[in-house]
């Protein structure tokens, strides 16, 4: 499994002309934990979703190359894309309150993911769903399977979401700010869970976040995006030696527990970064 993105641009038509959301992004992702960091509107989510071709209908996508394991995502037909979506690559979104279907039970949603890609019967899918719920460390999987999303906490909902996306054993998991909507304590649990599952299954992970230290902690490599471009790509361990002004600025804005109380830095944005 490898992903190759070369010179990806994503435009949206607006009343005033086109707005360029992604402007020439290139990245290669292998079987690794890859982080994409950037602020809101930097194009990180769009870039990741373009791999599954799950962009809004109005998006105009161009790329010199956009391939998933050699499959040309730009030209693949819908059924070829459906063979990738879910089956080979899953997507976890920010808030389970919105990303789970409110009128289907958690179990039914996981069973559906199982049955979409295997020949499992109803009962078999149900057993698999309960097994998956146990794997995401839900203590009472049978009860949760019969619960509707509004009856679950955010952390539980996100576990259901993870279980659902792991159901067909994908090779890649795209996690788009999977913990931003959760409480701080739950965040750590969910990330640890994701990390364990990804490692034990030998999956690739694309973790999208605006939290630079978190991403560098969990990932092997990090791409920093700003205004639709990758401004810097580096090994997570080398983050302290980041060269780009934006990355450095982000790091300098972080409060630490060890230093004396003082005003935090405010990022000074260099217009040259937009070029």
């Amino acid at each position: 499994m490898d992903i190759n993105i070369q010179n990806l641009t994503i435009d949206f038509p607006t009343a005033q002309g086109t707005s360029q959301a992604v402007r020439g992004v290139s990245m290669k992702i292998g079987r690794e934990k890859f982080g994409i960091v950037g602020e809101s509107g930097s194009g990180k989510s769009l870039t990741a979703r373009s791999i599954l071709r799950l962009l809004p209908d109005s998006a105009i996508v161009r790329a010199d190359a956009l391939t998933f394991d050699g499959i040309d995502v730009m030209r693949a037909d819908e059924s070829a894309m459906r063979a990738i979506r879910g089956r080979r690559a899953g997507l976890i979104m920010q808030d389970p309150k919105f990303s789970l279907n409110p009128v289907m039970t958690a179990g039914a949603q996981i069973e559906e993911a199982v049955r979409a890609h295997t020949k499992a019967g109803r009962r078999e899918a149900r057993e698999k769903a309960i097994d998956l719920l146990a794997q995401v460390q839900i203590r009472d999987p049978r009860r949760v399977a019969d619960a509707y999303p509004h009856e679950l906490s955010g952390g539980m909902g996100q576990r259901v979401m993870i279980a659902m996306m792991l159901a067909p054993d994908p090779e890649l998991l795209i996690a788009d700010e999977p913990t931003s909507a959760l409480d701080a304590t739950v965040q750590a649990e969910i990330l640890r869970l994701l990390d364990n599952l990804v490692s034990s299954r030998g999956m690739a992970l694309v973790l999208i976040s605006h939290d630079l230290p978190l991403v560098s902690h969990f990932c092997d490599r990090v791409a920093v995006m700003y205004a639709g471009r990758v401004v810097e790509e580096l090994k997570a361990a080398d983050l302290a030696h980041a060269k780009h002004g934006y990355t450095r600025g982000l790091l300098e804005c972080l409060p630490t527990l060890s230093q004396e109380k003082r005003r935090l830095n405010v990022m000074a944005r260099d217009p040259a970064w937009l070029a």
Binding site: R82, A83, M93
Partner: peptide, 12 residues
């Protein structure tokens, strides 16, 4: 809704 993207991401 976001859950529509989820459903599509499941490969339905």
């Amino acid at each position: 809704g976001e859950f529509i993207i989820t459903a599509r991401a499941k490969g339905l």
